[in-house]
């Protein structure tokens, strides 16, 4: 399972970085989204990857931590998703404003001279 998650994060990050460095604003925003998925998966995996384990300890007993899922990274991921979603939406608005004002979707607001 670790291998699959690691590969997933790697592929998402690689594609995200490549798209981020492209000259079109739409590619940049998709790249940012992919990168944020990769980061969210990464945060999620820092708590350890376990399936079918409860995140809450039973009352009274101090259980073995290896048998429980860490709930904190899941809470962090939720926060990161919300914030990432909001900032991406904001970026989208600026992107549209730039398209409207400059008439091009190049990130510099003008096509490169050839």
């Amino acid at each position: 399972m670790e291998l699959i998650v690691a590969l997933g994060i790697g592929v998402l990050t690689g594609s995200g970085v490549w798209l981020l460095l492209r000259p079109r604003t739409f590619q940049v925003i998709i790249g940012l989204s992919l990168l944020s998925y990769a980061v969210n998966l990464f945060i999620f995996s820092t708590g350890g990857l376990r399936t079918g384990q409860p995140p809450i300890l039973p009352q009274g007993g101090a259980g073995n931590l290896l048998e429980y899922a860490d709930p904190l990274p899941q809470a962090l991921v939720l926060t990161a998703i919300v914030i990432g979603f909001a900032t991406t939406a904001l970026f989208l608005v600026v992107l549209l404003a730039s398209r409207g004002l400059t008439g091009t979707d190049h990130v510099d607001g003008r096509e490169r001279d050839r």
Binding site: T25, T87, V94, A97
Partner: peptide, 21 residues
């Protein structure tokens, strides 16, 4: 607003989003 601000803002936001990641 205005083209200059939007262009600079676009770069600013993109850089800072990556920094946040």
């Amino acid at each position: 607003s205005g083209p200059a601000r939007v262009r600079a803002g676009l770069h600013y936001i993109a850089v800072n989003l990556v920094a946040s990641l």
